[in-house]
Design a protein around this nucleic acid. Structure first.
Length: 711
RNA sequence: GGGCGAUUAGCUCAGUUGGUAGAGCAGCGCUUUUACACAGCGAAGGUCACAGGUUCAAGUCCUGUAUCGCCCACCA
């Protein structure tokens, strides 16, 4: 027996050596697997990890679950590809980089965009080594030879092609619409990237001619020249649509026009409001309906424009009290309700209040895409685990709105389009051949915006496989499982379905498996401010990667969150050691024995029990019940193999009955042999290390590519 | 306002088509018996949120209530 079994299992000593063994074997790459020509493929595309980030607990879960599926299917003889990817993570990375610039006393505003891009690229590529090695350390059996980066020129080419095709199919338009603008980051966001923040502010009741209007935002009111009320409001029946009134306003006399619109809530405030179409969605809609003028009041930097007169150049927070002061001086403040509860939309990254602005942006018409997706989902062509995500998705798809894919950041894929200098019309221009505006004949410039990161990542399953060339797309697409966090069901999963269908005619994956959040040991959400963020790699180095992996799987049902405590991981460290010592006992007691020796009735029954376990575990794994599969193996090994079979065996080995002894020895060998296989997807390191030390006849040199037990 | 989920042992959670409650961890008692003290053995611990209903039988199905959480939409 190998002397190393005399000591407890030491994961730190084993893991990097074993990972190198796997990697050198080449078997992460499906092309190297010893398979028949017609072997069925199994494909998982790894959600591209932020190239700039560090492995967090959520990644730990992704890497574990996807690796469990990958290892299981590989052992079953499928042509198994787990394709790893790194994400440039557009806005996310740029924010990190901006903080770095800030520390250096620099700012991205004023930098040459090309220089900035290149600096961020270097920064990202440098940092990407970190996340990649962390993914490896989790034991991920991904095919690194096929690793893809979201800014790979081959990917960009495919993304451009989609952009062009959308334009051709009339699914793309450029429109001046209200966008969610963050004055700090100076970019727009999709509605999904906005956080609601409940606040208590003052609601100001201002005298506007004969009316009193209520507003929480007096600073937007400079240009308000339309006063709107509900057509059926009896209080204002005397005022007619289109009627004009002269009145005194913040910076002097103005002429206001009465507008009647049913969007007004008669019960709110006084039932009258003035509108600011440039900075509010509802107001914008009213202005569009009645073809009203729109005027910008607040600049992209969040400061008031010259229309504000003496307040021009001030930030909102600074201007608001001064404006109220002035209005009070003019006797235009009716009353102030200082206890007004409302929801303010903020930037999910910096918390800055979103300042809606009208900007010309590229939009994708989502309805036609969503309809196709709904057809497929309703026809059960795609399986959601857990099932209720299907409902959530259907609901979202049925109420979908157009998708703004323009972002005013440099770190991303540049939008291949020309914009008219005079009328702001846009033209898709992949070849760079457009030199003047078709509408007005004006000169054009290259669009300086980039794509929303999700626009490219929503094409990831087919884009990666197409970009790799050769037979990869034909072999591995559609993929089998898409596994990710439930929090990006709209951002990513649903859009992948729509774009995948659009571009390839096929669903990009057959099953969507959504895991929940990983919480701390007390079941609380991890956050930097609470200081309860778990670094999974610390647990891995303390208790072993295998222990961390199985701790992430057991007790983790899809879609529900998982509390991860050090005690739990520690418990599975003990389990790894248990397996280690079971091996020691069996090796000590079976030297020179043929594991295929004939079994007596009693031992045959032991093997039949084991077969029953194989059947159940295989079934659970096929049905994505990883937590059950892992728990069953755990209990079998500890409570049956160790506590019952091994204990009985001690007595048998002391007896004189040689035949009985040999039968039991062979049975133990077979059970251990099979148990290592069953446990391998969950705890790959310790099982492989043991496999490598077994002096027996094996069906493969490397456990990772040995055959999954069959009954 | 709309939607979705959760509520089971001190903690974290299982419980797959309804058949008199399970695990891990923590805690308690005992045992250093030659695979393992990263262990073994033993005991303890729950009116399965609450109220109704269906059923021979309900943690499991139905209705309602409460509490917690998440998502979407939104009124100046």
């Amino acid at each position: 027996m190998n002397d190393k079994f005399l000591n407890p299992y030491q994961p730190n000593e084993v893991e990097s050596r074993i990972y190198a063994l796997w990697e050198e074997s080449g078997f992460f790459n499906p092309d190297n697997l010893p398979l028949k020509e017609d072997a069925k493929p199994f494909t998982i595309i790894m959600p591209p990890a932020n190239a700039n980030g560090s492995l967090h607990a959520g990644h730990g879960l992704v890497m574990t679950i996807e690796d469990v599926m990958t290892r299981f299917q590989r052992m079953r003889g499928l042509k198994t590809l787990w394709l790893p990817g790194l994400d440039h993570a557009g806005f996310e990375t740029q924010v990190v980089f901006e903080k770095k610039l800030e520390k250096e006393g620099r700012s991205r505003f004023g930098m040459d965009p090309k220089d900035l891009y290149n600096e961020i690229l270097d920064f990202t590529l440098e940092n990407s080594k970190n996340i990649e090695s962390q993914i490896r350390s989790m034991g991920a059996s991904a095919d690194w030879s096929r690793k893809m980066f979201t800014l790979d020129p081959r990917i960009i080419e495919i993304v451009y092609d989609t952009f062009k095709q959308l334009s051709k199919d009339d699914l793309l338009y450029r429109g001046a619409r209200i966008v969610n603008w963050c004055p700090k980051h100076r970019t727009s966001f999709s509605d999904l990237e906005i956080k609601d923040d409940e606040r208590v502010d003052a609601l100001y009741y201002l005298k506007y001619g004969p009316f009193v209007i209520a507003t929480a935002r007096p600073e937007t009111k400079f240009g308000d020249k339309y006063v709107v009320m509900h057509p059926d409001d009896p209080r204002y029946a005397e005022y007619k649509d289109g009627q004009t009134l002269d009145l005194e306003w913040i910076n002097g006399p103005i002429t206001a026009t009465v507008i009647k619109d049913a969007a007004i809530d008669m019960a709110f405030g006084t039932g009258v409001m003035t509108i600011t179409p440039w900075h509010d969605q509802t107001d914008f809609d009213i202005a569009e309906r009645h073809k009203l003028d729109k005027e910008q009041i607040i600049g992209e930097d969040g400061k008031l424009l010259p229309v504000a007169g003496e307040f021009a150049g001030m930030k909102i927070a600074e201007a608001r009290p001064k404006i109220i002061e002035k209005l009070q001086g003019k006797g235009l403040v009716d009353k102030i309700d200082s206890n007004y509860k409302h929801v303010v939309r903020t930037c999910y990254k910096c918390g800055t209040t979103i300042e809606p602005q009208i900007k010309a942006q590229w939009f994708v018409r989502m309805k036609p895409l969503a309809e196709k997706a709904l057809e497929m989902i309703n026809a059960e062509k795609i399986t959601y685990i857990p099932e209720h995500y299907k409902k959530i998705t259907v609901h979202w798809l049925e109420n979908i709105i157009d998708w703004n894919i323009s972002r005013q950041i440099v770190w991303g894929i540049p939008i291949p389009a020309k914009i008219c200098d005079s009328c702001d019309a846009g033209y898709v221009d992949l070849e760079g051949t457009i030199t003047k505006c078709e509408k007005c004949g004006g000169t054009v410039h290259k669009d300086t915006d980039t794509f929303d990161t999700w626009f490219s990542s929503s094409q990831w399953p087919y884009a990666t496989l197409q970009a790799l060339g050769g037979k990869d797309f034909d072999t591995f697409y559609p993929t089998d499982v898409l596994e990710t966090g439930g929090d990006i069901i709209f951002f990513w999963v649903s859009r992948m379905i729509m774009l995948g269908l659009y571009k390839t005619g096929a669903l990009p994956f057959k099953t969507v498996y959504l895991h929940g959040l990983v919480l701390d040991g007390k079941g609380q959400k991890m956050s930097k401010s609470k200081g309860n963020v778990i670094n999974p790699l610390e647990y891995a180095s303390q208790f072993g990667t295998d222990a961390l992996r199985i701790a992430l799987v057991i007790g983790n049902t899809p879609g529900t969150s998982l509390a991860l405590s050090p005690d739990k991981v520690k418990g599975y460290k003990n389990f790894a050691n248990k397996v280690w010592n079971i091996t020691r006992f069996i090796l000590e007691n079976t030297e020179g024995v043929d594991m295929h020796a004939a079994l007596n009735e009693e031992d045959t029954k032991l093997l039949r029990d084991f077969d029953a376990l194989v059947t159940e575990v295989t079934d659970d794994l096929e049905k994505f019940r990883f937590y059950m599969a892992a728990e069953k193996i755990y209990h079998y090994i500890w409570d049956t193999l160790a506590s019952v079979i091994l204990e009985e065996s001690k007595a048998i080995f002391k007896e004189e009955d040689a035949a009985k002894k040999v039968s039991r020895q062979a049975a133990l060998m077979q059970i251990l042999y099979g148990s290592l296989k069953l446990l391998h997807p969950f705890m790959p390191f310790v099982t492989e290390e043991i496999w490598q030390s077994l002096p027996w006849e094996k069906d493969a040199e490397i456990l990772m590519v040995s055959k999954w037990p069959s009954v």
